[in-house]
Every structure is written in structure tokens, then in C-alpha cells.
Design a protein around this nucleic acid. Structure first.
Lengths: 205, 205
DNA sequence: GAGAAAATGTAGTGAGCGCTATATAAAATC
DNA sequence: GATTTTATATAGCGCTCACTACATTTTCTC
């Protein structure tokens, strides 16, 4: 082979040949592909081509296609896509945090570079792979549980249905974004949903 | 062959061998399969096995997999799944019809026999086939246009965003149902969304 | 019955799927 | 340098995908 090794002299402390690609970069690329077209529609061959690696390197690094999807989901939820965590970090009342959450979704979900909606909510939608579905489902359940616990701080009686309201609204916004809705349309919805949430929260259960 | 022809004596006026299967029944079966698992996840081989026909009969009758999907969508929208048409048929104000629409969705969308959500909204979600996506998208656009025109009768100024609110809420309910939400959860959402719609309609734009 | 038309059964097509066996190349330790 | 370890490249696995060529059967018209 005739590669120009970037740093062949310095020891890394790890035995064996060094990876010729950046794993984090690969996960980032895969994340975008899965997000743009859904889990099933992105093949291992395309991933390999896009990542610049051959199948053996792919499976040595990620174990399986679902393994890479799991890494992509981890990267997704650890970043700016974790909308509720970002909204909660700014503090405020339950109504304020939920409003911020919905408005943030309206800002983040519209199509940008072929990517729209939420990877967790829609990335494995209609997938034939049970493993991919289970990975996304676990994150969805954890997400709504987090929101429910947060709402329970102010409204323990109605926390369940109020969290469901937010979750279903988010699913609608993600689906709408994937169907082509722009930020203005999603923001209009988010504002109406926020007003609704505020009123429902204020009303006695 | 040793088939027992059901009515070999009476002429049908059409030349050639008669179909050995009922096309409408086949479309019905295909509709359920597409609805349950999504367009891409249902293969032609499985459809043929389930319908009891071989590939040549399949393609002679439907032209292509997408052709059968189109027939399935037509059958779907012509039946009880056309929620808005059913809600509108009962008459009443815009707020009443929309409330009926959302509550009807909450009743129809939860999983029954492996089928959940809306075929038009989610049947081709994440599909790699542009034709299937285009068929579903056309029906989605027609549906929201119908709702917009109906709302415009009472609120011409805000008909666009109010119709979008309903459409996004329905997408959320369909997605939630496919994720396992039951009728109680969807009904709770539908009631909150209905109250929200009523208030937004009453408020001056 | 002859011929035409339509549907069927048998048997496949090329292409893509996720994944792997095997050998080689590059880095470490000894 | 010899050995070990890791990652690589080449090539191909068995399987499914949507779809079709071809001969045959059924049913019509004439």
C-alpha cells in the first residue's frame, strides 16, 4: 500500500496497526445519513463508501450496522439535539421550560442539508430491524419519562398526560418537518401547543 | 391444473382466462400489510404468498409494488379511515367538526391486529421508493387542503395555521399510536388539542 | 373446432442486502 | 529481527429484493 501515514513515528501505546479513519467523524457522518433517510434506507455499502472504509474495518469498529446506529443515537442525544435538556438547563417554571422545548424543536426540526425532524423519533420508523427499533424506542421512553418527572414537580396528578401531550406534539412536529414543514409553520404550532400546555397546567386536574 | 372453477359456465363478456383471486380482497390484504409495517418492509414475495398469487399474476393485476400501494391508499382513503370526511358529514361548527376529527383519530389509531396509526401519514415514512413517497404525500397535501378550506369558512385569516395545527396533531397521534400509545392516551391528547383549537379559533388573529 | 386473448405456473434475472473468511500491511513488544 | 497485535484490502458468502421470459392453461369469439 502507498498511504502517507500522518504520524508514523510517535507511539500511541496501543499495539497493532492504527485506524486509518476517525471513528467519531464516521459516527457523525453515519448519524447524518440515518437522520436524513432513516435506518433501513441507508445500506452498509453506502456507509462504507461515505466513510471511506471497507466492510472489515466497518465491522471491526462498530460490530454491526445496528451497532453504528447505536453510536449515532448516542452522539445525537449527547449533542444539541437533546432539546429538553437544553430547555431545562435555562431554568424557569414548568410552563416556561416546556414552551422553550417546543419552540426549540420548531427551530431545530426543519430540513437543513437534507436532514429534518428528530433521529430518535423517526430514524427507525417503519424499520424492519427489531434491534434498531428497540434502540430508538428505549431513548423515546427515557425522554418522555424525564419530561414526566420534571412536570411532576409542579403537577404530580396530571404529569402523565401532560408529558404525553408534549411527546405527541413533538412527534407531530418531527413528522411534519420530515414532510417538508418550515420553521414558521412549526413555530406557529409550537406556540399554540405551548399556550395549550400552559392552560392545561393551570386548570385543576 | 385441477382448480374447481366457481362459475365456469356463465360468460363474463371478457375474453381470456378468469382471475383466480379477488382483486379487491388482495388490495385489502395488501393495505393491512403496508399499514402494519410500512411500504418498504413488506416485500413482493410476502405479498404474493399472503395473497396466494405468483409474481406474474401480481404484476399483471397491479403493474408494480407501487401500483398496489396506490390501490391500497385509494381503498384506505375511501373507507372509514377518512376521518375528517366522517367528522364533517355529521355537521356542526368548525370547532365541533375538528374536535370530532381528533377524537375519531384517537379511537381509530391505536393498534388493532398489528395495525396502528394512519397509512397515509406513516405508511411510506422513511421509504426509499420515491414513487410510494409521492403517492402518500399527494394524499397528505390534499387532506390538509380540505381541512384548510373547511376552516376558512369561519376563520379565513387563520385557516392556514389552524389547519396546520390539526395536521401536525394528527401526525403526532399517528406516530404515537405506532409507538404503542393506547386509546386513553390518544384521547387525552385529542381533548387537549381540541380545547386548544377552540381557543385559538375564538381568539382574534 | 380454430384462433385470439387473458391469466397462470415454472423458473429465473441482475442487483442489492448485511456480513465474513482469508491474507496482507502496519504498528507495537520482546 | 522475531513475534504479537490490530487494521486493512480482496473477494465472496447466502439471502432477499422487485421484477420478467416463456410456456401453458383457461376462456372467449368466430
Amino acid at each position: 500500500m502507498v498511504t502517507t501515514e500522518s504520524s508514523p513515528k510517535e507511539s500511541s501505546g496501543v499495539r497493532g496497526r492504527r485506524r486509518s479513519f476517525d471513528v467519531d467523524e464516521a459516527v457523525e457522518t453515519a448519524m447524518k445519513l440515518f437522520h436524513a433517510r432513516g435506518y433501513d434506507a441507508v445500506g452498509v455499502a453506502e456507509l462504507g463508501a461515505e466513510l471511506g472504509i471497507k466492510p472489515p474495518s466497518f465491522y471491526a469498529a462498530f460490530g454491526s450496522k445496528a451497532g453504528l446506529f447505536e453510536r449515532a443515537l448516542q452522539r445525537y442525544t449527547a449533542g444539541e439535539a437533546n432539546i429538553f435538556a437544553r430547555a431545562q438547563a435555562e431554568g424557569g417554571s414548568v410552563a416556561e421550560v416546556i414552551e422553550r422545548t417546543l419552540l426549540l424543536a420548531a427551530r431545530l426540526y426543519p430540513e437543513r442539508n437534507g436532514v429534518a425532524g428528530c433521529l430518535v423519533l423517526d430514524g427507525a420508523r417503519n424499520s424492519a430491524d427489531p434491534e434498531a427499533c428497540a434502540l430508538a424506542e428505549a431513548l423515546r421512553k427515557a425522554g418522555v419519562a424525564t419530561i414526566r418527572d420534571f412536570i411532576a414537580g409542579e403537577a404530580p396528578e396530571r404529569a402523565g398526560e401532560l408529558a404525553d401531550f408534549v411527546a405527541i406534539a413533538m412527534k407531530g412536529m418531527s413528522a411534519a418537518a420530515r414532510d417538508g414543514a418550515d420553521e414558521a409553520a412549526l413555530t406557529a404550532f409550537a406556540e399554540m401547543a405551548s399556550r395549550a400546555f400552559r392552560r392545561e397546567l393551570a386548570a385543576e386536574g
